[in-house]
Amino acid sequence: MQASLRAGTVRACGASRAALSKRVRSVEVRAFFGSKGSTATVSEFYSFNVQDIDGRATKMDKYKGKVVLVVNLASACGFTPQYAELQDLYQKYSSKGLVVLGFPCNQFGQQEPGSNSDIKAFAKKSYGVTFPLMGKVDVNGGSAEPLFKWLKSEKGGFLNSDIKWNFSKFLVDKEGNVVGRYGSTTTPKQLETDLAKLL
Protein backbone atom coordinates (compact mmCIF):
# COMPACT_ATOMS: atom_id res chain seq x y z
CA MET A 1 0.00 0.00 0.00
CA GLN A 2 2.83 2.39 0.90
CA ALA A 3 4.48 1.66 -2.44
CA SER A 4 1.17 2.39 -4.15
CA LEU A 5 0.80 5.64 -2.22
CA ARG A 6 4.34 6.65 -3.10
CA ALA A 7 3.72 5.91 -6.76
CA GLY A 8 0.48 7.89 -6.65
CA THR A 9 2.29 10.78 -5.00
CA VAL A 10 5.03 10.73 -7.64
CA ARG A 11 2.41 10.69 -10.40
CA ALA A 12 0.48 13.51 -8.72
CA CYS A 13 3.62 15.57 -8.22
CA GLY A 14 4.67 14.94 -11.78
CA ALA A 15 1.28 16.02 -13.06
CA SER A 16 1.38 19.07 -10.84
CA ARG A 17 4.82 20.04 -12.09
CA ALA A 18 3.76 19.57 -15.69
CA ALA A 19 0.63 21.69 -15.16
CA LEU A 20 2.64 24.38 -13.40
CA SER A 21 5.24 24.40 -16.16
CA LYS A 22 2.49 24.77 -18.74
CA ARG A 23 0.96 27.69 -16.83
CA VAL A 24 4.36 29.41 -16.51
CA ARG A 25 5.01 29.03 -20.23
CA SER A 26 1.59 30.46 -20.95
CA VAL A 27 2.27 33.50 -18.77
CA GLU A 28 5.67 33.99 -20.42
CA VAL A 29 4.13 33.84 -23.87
CA ARG A 30 1.44 36.34 -22.93
CA ALA A 31 4.03 38.66 -21.39
CA PHE A 32 6.23 38.51 -24.50
CA PHE A 33 3.55 38.77 -27.14
CA GLY A 34 1.01 40.88 -25.25
CA SER A 35 -2.64 40.20 -24.66
CA LYS A 36 -3.53 40.59 -28.36
CA GLY A 37 -0.82 38.30 -29.68
CA SER A 38 1.52 41.00 -31.02
CA THR A 39 5.04 41.69 -29.88
CA ALA A 40 5.17 44.56 -27.40
CA THR A 41 7.92 46.98 -28.45
CA VAL A 42 9.16 50.34 -27.24
CA SER A 43 9.04 53.06 -29.89
CA GLU A 44 12.36 54.05 -31.43
CA PHE A 45 11.41 57.67 -30.70
CA TYR A 46 12.52 57.16 -27.11
CA SER A 47 16.00 56.01 -28.11
CA PHE A 48 17.12 59.39 -29.45
CA ASN A 49 19.29 61.87 -27.59
CA VAL A 50 19.55 65.53 -28.62
CA GLN A 51 21.14 68.72 -27.32
CA ASP A 52 18.90 71.41 -25.89
CA ILE A 53 19.47 75.07 -26.68
CA ASP A 54 21.79 75.39 -23.68
CA GLY A 55 23.93 72.46 -24.82
CA ARG A 56 22.59 69.93 -22.35
CA ALA A 57 21.88 66.34 -23.36
CA THR A 58 18.17 65.61 -23.59
CA LYS A 59 16.83 62.07 -23.87
CA MET A 60 13.54 61.57 -25.63
CA ASP A 61 12.61 58.86 -23.15
CA LYS A 62 11.88 61.61 -20.63
CA TYR A 63 8.72 62.23 -22.69
CA LYS A 64 7.29 58.73 -22.39
CA GLY A 65 3.57 58.90 -21.78
CA LYS A 66 3.30 62.40 -23.24
CA VAL A 67 2.06 63.75 -26.56
CA VAL A 68 4.94 65.49 -28.34
CA LEU A 69 4.75 68.09 -31.11
CA VAL A 70 8.13 68.43 -32.88
CA VAL A 71 8.63 71.59 -34.94
CA ASN A 72 11.58 73.01 -36.92
CA LEU A 73 11.77 76.74 -36.19
CA ALA A 74 13.20 79.92 -37.71
CA SER A 75 13.33 83.46 -36.35
CA ALA A 76 13.14 85.43 -39.62
CA CYS A 77 10.47 83.57 -41.57
CA GLY A 78 7.00 84.54 -42.71
CA PHE A 79 5.75 81.70 -40.53
CA THR A 80 7.65 82.84 -37.42
CA PRO A 81 4.44 84.21 -35.80
CA GLN A 82 3.44 80.55 -35.39
CA TYR A 83 5.67 80.71 -32.31
CA ALA A 84 2.74 82.44 -30.58
CA GLU A 85 0.28 79.64 -31.37
CA LEU A 86 2.78 76.99 -30.34
CA GLN A 87 3.18 78.74 -27.01
CA ASP A 88 -0.62 79.01 -26.65
CA LEU A 89 -1.01 75.26 -27.23
CA TYR A 90 1.73 74.51 -24.75
CA GLN A 91 0.18 76.71 -22.09
CA LYS A 92 -3.26 75.25 -22.69
CA TYR A 93 -2.33 71.55 -22.77
CA SER A 94 1.00 71.05 -21.01
CA SER A 95 -0.78 70.17 -17.77
CA LYS A 96 -2.60 67.42 -19.70
CA GLY A 97 0.60 65.93 -21.10
CA LEU A 98 1.58 67.97 -24.17
CA VAL A 99 5.20 68.81 -24.91
CA VAL A 100 6.22 71.13 -27.75
CA LEU A 101 9.82 70.61 -28.87
CA GLY A 102 11.24 73.40 -31.01
CA PHE A 103 14.32 72.73 -33.18
CA PRO A 104 15.80 75.85 -34.82
CA CYS A 105 17.05 75.21 -38.35
CA ASN A 106 18.91 77.44 -40.83
CA GLN A 107 18.44 75.28 -43.94
CA PHE A 108 15.51 77.19 -45.43
CA GLY A 109 16.35 80.63 -46.79
CA GLN A 110 19.05 81.06 -44.14
CA GLN A 111 16.29 82.35 -41.88
CA GLU A 112 17.82 81.13 -38.60
CA PRO A 113 21.37 82.54 -38.77
CA GLY A 114 21.85 83.35 -35.09
CA SER A 115 23.52 81.38 -32.31
CA ASN A 116 21.57 79.22 -29.90
CA SER A 117 21.72 81.99 -27.30
CA ASP A 118 20.42 84.52 -29.86
CA ILE A 119 17.53 82.21 -30.77
CA LYS A 120 16.64 81.58 -27.14
CA ALA A 121 16.62 85.31 -26.34
CA PHE A 122 14.50 86.09 -29.42
CA ALA A 123 11.90 83.41 -28.66
CA LYS A 124 11.56 84.51 -25.05
CA LYS A 125 11.46 88.25 -25.73
CA SER A 126 9.23 88.17 -28.82
CA TYR A 127 6.82 85.36 -27.93
CA GLY A 128 7.31 84.53 -24.25
CA VAL A 129 8.29 80.97 -25.17
CA THR A 130 8.42 78.53 -22.27
CA PHE A 131 8.26 75.24 -24.22
CA PRO A 132 11.56 73.35 -24.61
CA LEU A 133 13.92 74.66 -27.28
CA MET A 134 16.63 72.41 -28.67
CA GLY A 135 19.96 73.32 -30.25
CA LYS A 136 20.06 74.38 -33.89
CA VAL A 137 20.05 71.38 -36.26
CA ASP A 138 19.81 70.36 -39.90
CA VAL A 139 16.64 68.48 -40.77
CA ASN A 140 17.50 67.41 -44.34
CA GLY A 141 20.57 65.95 -45.98
CA GLY A 142 23.43 63.85 -44.72
CA SER A 143 23.98 66.02 -41.65
CA ALA A 144 20.34 65.90 -40.56
CA GLU A 145 19.64 65.30 -36.90
CA PRO A 146 18.99 61.53 -36.53
CA LEU A 147 15.67 62.22 -34.81
CA PHE A 148 14.44 64.05 -37.91
CA LYS A 149 15.68 61.30 -40.21
CA TRP A 150 13.55 58.90 -38.21
CA LEU A 151 10.51 61.18 -38.09
CA LYS A 152 10.63 61.57 -41.87
CA SER A 153 10.97 57.83 -42.37
CA GLU A 154 7.83 57.32 -40.29
CA LYS A 155 5.81 59.98 -42.13
CA GLY A 156 7.22 60.58 -45.59
CA GLY A 157 5.06 63.54 -46.50
CA PHE A 158 4.19 64.68 -50.02
CA LEU A 159 6.21 62.92 -52.77
CA ASN A 160 9.31 62.36 -50.63
CA SER A 161 10.50 62.56 -47.07
CA ASP A 162 12.34 65.88 -47.19
CA ILE A 163 11.02 68.71 -45.05
CA LYS A 164 10.04 71.57 -47.35
CA TRP A 165 10.31 74.66 -45.11
CA ASN A 166 10.36 76.11 -41.63
CA PHE A 167 7.62 75.23 -39.14
CA SER A 168 6.94 71.73 -40.37
CA LYS A 169 5.37 69.67 -37.59
CA PHE A 170 5.35 66.06 -36.44
CA LEU A 171 2.81 64.83 -33.90
CA VAL A 172 3.89 61.91 -31.70
CA ASP A 173 1.42 60.06 -29.48
CA LYS A 174 1.87 58.83 -25.91
CA GLU A 175 3.39 55.55 -27.15
CA GLY A 176 6.00 57.27 -29.32
CA ASN A 177 4.23 56.69 -32.65
CA VAL A 178 4.34 59.42 -35.30
CA VAL A 179 0.63 59.91 -36.01
CA GLY A 180 0.66 63.18 -37.94
CA ARG A 181 2.81 65.34 -40.19
CA TYR A 182 1.87 68.89 -41.11
CA GLY A 183 3.45 71.45 -43.42
CA SER A 184 4.30 75.05 -42.72
CA THR A 185 0.93 76.37 -43.85
CA THR A 186 -0.93 74.28 -41.27
CA THR A 187 -0.94 76.47 -38.21
CA PRO A 188 -0.60 75.05 -34.71
CA LYS A 189 -4.16 76.17 -34.01
CA GLN A 190 -5.44 74.12 -36.96
CA LEU A 191 -3.99 70.90 -35.57
CA GLU A 192 -5.38 71.45 -32.07
CA THR A 193 -8.25 69.01 -32.63
CA ASP A 194 -5.89 66.20 -33.67
CA LEU A 195 -3.64 66.94 -30.75
CA ALA A 196 -6.41 67.13 -28.15
CA LYS A 197 -7.72 63.68 -29.14
CA LEU A 198 -4.42 62.14 -28.08
CA LEU A 199 -4.28 63.69 -24.62
Rank of each mutant, 00 (worst) to 15 (best):
L20W: 12
L20C: 08
S21K: 06
K22C: 02
R23Y: 07
R23E: 15
R23V: 14
R23T: 14
V24I: 09
V24L: 12
S26C: 08
S26E: 15
V27Q: 15
E28A: 13
E28Q: 15
E28T: 14
V29K: 05
R30E: 13
F32R: 10
F32Q: 15
F33L: 09
F33K: 13
G34E: 13
S35R: 10
K36Y: 06
K36N: 11
K36E: 06
K36C: 08
K36I: 08
G37T: 04
G37I: 11
S38A: 08
S38P: 00
T39Q: 13
T39H: 08
T39R: 12
A40C: 13
T41D: 01
T41P: 00
T41I: 12
V42G: 00
S43R: 00
E44L: 04
E44Y: 01
E44W: 00
F45D: 02
S47D: 10
S47T: 11
S47N: 05
S47Q: 09
N49E: 12
V50I: 13
V50M: 00
V50A: 03
Q51I: 01
D52F: 08
D52E: 04
I53H: 08
D54K: 14
D54Q: 14
D54V: 03
G55C: 02
R56C: 08
R56Q: 14
T58A: 15
K59T: 09
K59G: 15
K62Q: 14
K62P: 00
Y63V: 08
Y63D: 04
K64N: 02
G65C: 02
G65N: 06
G65F: 03
G65K: 04
K66V: 02
L69E: 07
L69A: 09
L69H: 12
L69R: 04
V70R: 01
V71F: 02
N72V: 14
A74I: 05
S75H: 03
A76W: 09
A76N: 09
A76V: 08
G78E: 10
G78D: 06
G78H: 12
T80H: 05
T80G: 05
P81E: 04
P81W: 08
Q82C: 07
Q82Y: 09
Q82G: 10
Y83D: 09
Y83I: 11
Y83P: 05
Y83E: 06
A84L: 15
E85S: 05
Q87V: 06
D88C: 03
D88V: 11
D88S: 15
L89F: 15
L89C: 14
Y90P: 02
Y90F: 14
Q91E: 14
K92V: 04
K92R: 04
K92M: 06
K92Q: 13
Y93C: 02
Y93N: 01
S94H: 07
S95I: 03
K96A: 08
G97F: 05
G97I: 02
L98D: 05
L98Y: 12
V99P: 11
V100W: 06
L101H: 10
